[in-house]
């Protein structure tokens, strides 16, 4: 059976496909815009299980800011696992950002401070384990990380867009 194409259906499909293409391009634009208009902070980290690079192009990063003392919890109630939180960063030594507080709702950052979204991974007696969804890092082909044997300390430059998205901009060895 041949379905007669109603002109309206073809037009609707064209509109739908155009919207999808624009959307994908929009995601890419958000990537550029996050760098261009976003706030930039350096976070200290180190890669774990570097030997994973033999099998793929990704390493897992463990941020120093992933472990936060429970004293930094500035919200009512007790933190719940998998809860979404706002982490306030303040500039620290060596221009690395350090956690100033963990909030359940978005705090108002002072000058020089930045807010990054995160999730409670685990709650311990006097500390919190956080996840920033920035833990998976694609290692470019020419990165010195590919020749490293043990996980060296790194500094990661993170851009945070005013609308809340974040991206890893670049990664460098700590102390350079």
């Amino acid at each position: 059976m041949i379905t007669r194409p109603t002109p309206s259906r073809r037009l609707l499909l064209q509109l739908l496909v155009a919207a999808q293409v624009l959307y994908v391009l929009g995601v890419a634009a958000a990537g550029y815009a996050t760098t261009a208009y976003g706030q930039h902070i350096w976070l200290a980290t180190s890669p774990v299980e570097l030997h994973q690079l033999q099998y793929g192009d990704f390493v897992r990063l463990r941020y120093v800011a992933a472990t936060v003392p429970l004293a930094a919890w500035h919200a009512g109630g007790t933190p719940q696992r998998r809860q979404g939180v706002y982490v306030l960063f303040a500039p620290g030594a060596d221009s690395l950002a350090t956690v100033a507080g963990v909030y359940a709702s978005e705090p108002r950052p002072a000058a020089g401070q930045a807010v990054l979204r995160g999730f409670v991974q685990e709650v311990y007696n006097n500390s919190l384990e956080l996840r920033y969804n920035l833990e998976r890092y694609y290692v470019p082909g020419d990165s010195p990380l590919r020749r490293a044997k043990t996980g060296p300390p790194l500094r990661v430059r993170v851009s945070i867009a005013p609308w809340g998205q974040a991206r890893i901009e670049r990664v460098r060895a700590l102390g350079k």
């Binding site: 999808q20 959307y23 994908v24 995601v27 890419a28 958000a30 990537g31 550029y32 996050t34 979404g84 979204r117 920033y132 969804n133 920035l134 890092y137 694609y138 809340g164 998205q165 974040a166 991206r167 890893i168 901009e169």
Partner: peptide, 18 residues
Amino acid sequence: FGAGIILTSQLYQLVGYD
């Protein structure tokens, strides 16, 4: 289309929180 959204976010190491 779905793969496009996921791979493009990955391309820019972009993280969304919703």
